[in-house]
Amino acid sequence: MSTGTSTSTPPTPLPPIDYVGYESEHQLAGMMALIENDLSEPYSIYTYRYFLHQWPKLSFLAMDREKNVCIGVIVCRLDFHGHSKLKRGYIAMLAVSKEYRKRKIGSTLVLMAIESMKTAGADEIVLETEYTNQSAIALYQQMGFIKDKRLYRYYLNGVDAFRLKLFCKPEAQELPTDEVPIMSQ
């Protein structure tokens, strides 16, 4: 199957995609190759291991079935936020190979991750994205994320980030967070 981006060729059937959970480090090389290509931040292998070893169930891969190549990946974390009782999910990395974009692979991965984090009791889910990355922002806004904060010069390349947030439970707002001192309850 052609991996070119030319649109003049007659429509060929799109390569079928399988979505799988993270299982072991044999998947790691493919994931890293994809992410290093895609994200501005340099990550060491320990960054990947930090996430994958602690929260293996929160990471998913999109595979090109025919080539058996990883073409999309999402890596997440779920933890108590600061000293609060709030369980905060965090989407650390999301990448989809260029040739496979516009096929809702990113959205599917995000939805799978959100579902798994919600099942595990997440109150809210956050992530950061470059403030200029319109397509990423649009993707997350489609799911109901809002831009909660702007982070000045967040990335090593000096670009600001937006902290995007999804509220998983309507009642979550009653819980105090680190942002607001605990007031009379």
Binding site: M143, F167, C168, A172, Q173, E179, M183
Partner: peptide, 24 residues
């Protein structure tokens, strides 16, 4: 439309969160 599409969120929750600092 997009808010409803995935059933992940609703406007009232968003609203409350946006103005959380004023809530109490």
């Amino acid at each position: 439309a997009h808010l409803a599409s995935h059933g992940l969120n609703d406007l009232e929750t968003l609203y409350k969160q946006r103005f959380k600092a004023f809530h109490h």
